[in-house]
Structure formats: structure tokens, C-alpha cells
Design a protein around this nucleic acid. Structure first.
Length: 302
DNA sequence: GTCCGGATAG
DNA sequence: CTATCCGGAC
């Protein structure tokens, strides 16, 4: 059972985060007034597994070339993957192109404002669907990324880490704090993420700069060591299949004609790992071809 | 070397 | 629920 003091403490969190965000929000492209829903969708997909600083230049190039979903849908998946360049996880580029096609075909070229319609698009999951609904359309739906999860784990649950993601639990926790007013809900969604990115960071949180330090359950408990299950650790990149995939993709992006099999062979000495990576790219639809014909990006003209 | 970041297939 | 999927900054 929750005490009255506990309720009061929790109720203080959103207004303080909102006030802090009003003063401390970074000036980012997707926060510009009039930024399009399409731009929001593109930026959120780019931000899925890529830090802000690396996204910004690529986003601006992307939107200059494809200012609408119709524009992207009219171009080839190969060009989308090429323009993605080295942002990483190129399946996102393929999914974004497929989402643009779906938006054109099913939604008349307008990015949908409904969470379920957004979730039905390729490459859009729980985070991105709610981020677009909240930030592009002002809907008061909870948006939870890894930073928000850490803020809630500390301030509300009194734990030092968030542990493995539990989507339903996380969304419920955010929903319970979310103001009903759409403008406040938007600011709290964005502010909680920003707080987690810039102040309530994983390793060395700057509690002296935190607007909710006096309300934080973790701080009140004396910063207890986290006991629960940890989020899984990312495997090494060097020598990984991901590195080999990246090398092959780089070769395909740079070539206007099919890349011969012997060129692929020269990219990585371990044939078992190389073939596994290539098979994975073919299965993902990021590459087309055969040992005889060579390999190309999907939907290439050549 | 370590850190950062959500979607999806099985 | 778990494994897979990138690459640049520090």
C-alpha cells in the first residue's frame, strides 16, 4: 500500500521536470517549431540505436533529399540504405523505406497519429510509435526510452538501475506520472528523457544538478547498490558478425554494379563467419544476388 | 577497452 | 524471454 507522503512526493516529480526542461532543453532539430511529423518519424528511427550527435547531420541530409514519406517511397530501398551510410543497423533504413511505402499506400502519405497504426508500420515499436504520437501530434501517451526507465527506477522505485526492459510495467509506471494536459504530458515525456540523458546518467549521475533530487527515492534511501537482474551486456564489436556485416554493406553501398563474390571473400578471412554474415544480409533483404551474379543492394537499378 | 541505444525473429 | 543487429566517441 502506498502512503500519502509517497503520493505527494511522486506528484511533485512531473512539474519539477517540466520546469527544468523548459530551462534546459537542448536546441535540437526535431524540437524546432513546425518540424514535420515525417521528420519526427525519421529522427526517432535514427535515434533508436544512435547517439544524438551522430544523428543530426544525417537527419538534415535525409530530410533535404526526402522531405516527405511520398518522396522516399518513390525512391529505391537501395538509395535509402546508401543514404543511411554508417549510422549502423541498416535494417532501420530498409524498414524506414518500407514504412514510407506503407504510409503512402495506406495513409495517403500522412504519417498516422494513432499509436496502433504506427505500431503496424515496419521498424516502429513501442518507443517510436508513442514518441511520434506524443511529439508530432501532442498526444498524452507515455513515452519510455532507456533514459526515462533509469529516471523512474531511481526517483520512483528507489533503485540504482532499471534492469532489463519490461515494456508493460515501464509504460504503466510512466502513465501513472503523466499529466493529463497534452502540453504538460509532452514536456514531461521529453523532459524525463532529457534528464536521464544529461543529468541522471548511468555511471556518474549529477544529483547536484537534478531538479528532483529532493524527491528521489534512490537518494532518500542512501543510494543502495542495485540488487536485481542486470540488463544484458552488448557483445564485443571487434571480430563480431556485426563487424563483418558492416564491411560487406560498406562494399555494396560503394558499388554501382554487383559486387563479385571474390571481392566479398577478400573482406574477411574466416569463411564460415563471412558466409554467415552474407546469408544474414540476404535473409534481412539488405542484399540481393548470388555467387555467380555478385551482390547488390536491394532494389538497385543495375 | 567501454559506452550508448530500440525492434524483431525465434 | 533471449539473441541478434552497427559504428563512432571517449
Amino acid at each position: 500500500m502506498r502512503g500519502a507522503g509517497e503520493e505527494k512526493r511522486r506528484a511533485g516529480i512531473p512539474p519539477r521536470v517540466i520546469a527544468w526542461f523548459a530551462e534546459n532543453a537542448r536546441d535540437l532539430p526535431w524540437r524546432r517549431p513546425g518540424f514535420s511529423a515525417w521528420g519526427t518519424l525519421v529522427s526517432e528511427i535514427m535515434l533508436q540505436q544512435t547517439p544524438v550527435a551522430r544523428v543530426i547531420p544525417r537527419l538534415e541530409q535525409w530530410l533535404a533529399r526526402w522531405p516527405s514519406s511520398d518522396a522516399l517511397a518513390a525512391d529505391s530501398p537501395a538509395e535509402a540504405v546508401r543514404a543511411w551510410d554508417r549510422l549502423g543497423y541498416p535494417r532501420r533504413a530498409l524498414a524506414l523505406h518500407a514504412a514510407a511505402v506503407a504510409i503512402s499506400e495506406r495513409h495517403g502519405g500522412r504519417v498516422p497519429d494513432d499509436v496502433d497504426a504506427l505500431l503496424a508500420l515496419p521498424g516502429i515499436g513501442d518507443y517510436t510509435a508513442r514518441a511520434v504520437a506524443a511529439f508530432a501530434y501532442g498526444q498524452p501517451v507515455p513515452v519510455v526510452d532507456v533514459n526515462t526507465r533509469r529516471v523512474l527506477a531511481r526517483a520512483v522505485a528507489g533503485q540504482g538501475e532499471a534492469g532489463p526492459a519490461r515494456t508493460r510495467v515501464d509504460l504503466t509506471a510512466m502513465q501513472e506520472l503523466l499529466p493529463s494536459d497534452p502540453a504538460e504530458a509532452r514536456a514531461f515525456n521529453a523532459g524525463a528523457m532529457e534528464l536521464g540523458q544529461t543529468v541522471c546518467v548511468a555511471r556518474t549521475p549529477r544529483c547536484e544538478a537534478c531538479p528532483i533530487a529532493e524527491l528521489c527515492a534512490w537518494r532518500a534511501a542512501g543510494y543502495p547498490e542495485y540488487e536485481g537482474p542486470s540488463a544484458p551486456r552488448q557483445a564485443r564489436f571487434e571480430g563480431s558478425d556485426r563487424q563483418v556485416r558492416g564491411l560487406i554493406m560498406r562494399e555494396l553501398r560503394l558499388s554501382d554494379t554487383p559486387v563479385p563474390a571474390d571481392v566479398i571473400e577478400g573482406l574477411w578471412p574466416d569463411s564460415v563467419q563471412r558466409e554467415r554474415a552474407l546469408a544474414g544480409l540476404l535473409a534481412d533483404g539488405l542484399a540481393n544476388g548470388s555467387p555467380e551474379a555478385g551482390y547488390s543492394l536491394p532494389g538497385s537499378v543495375s
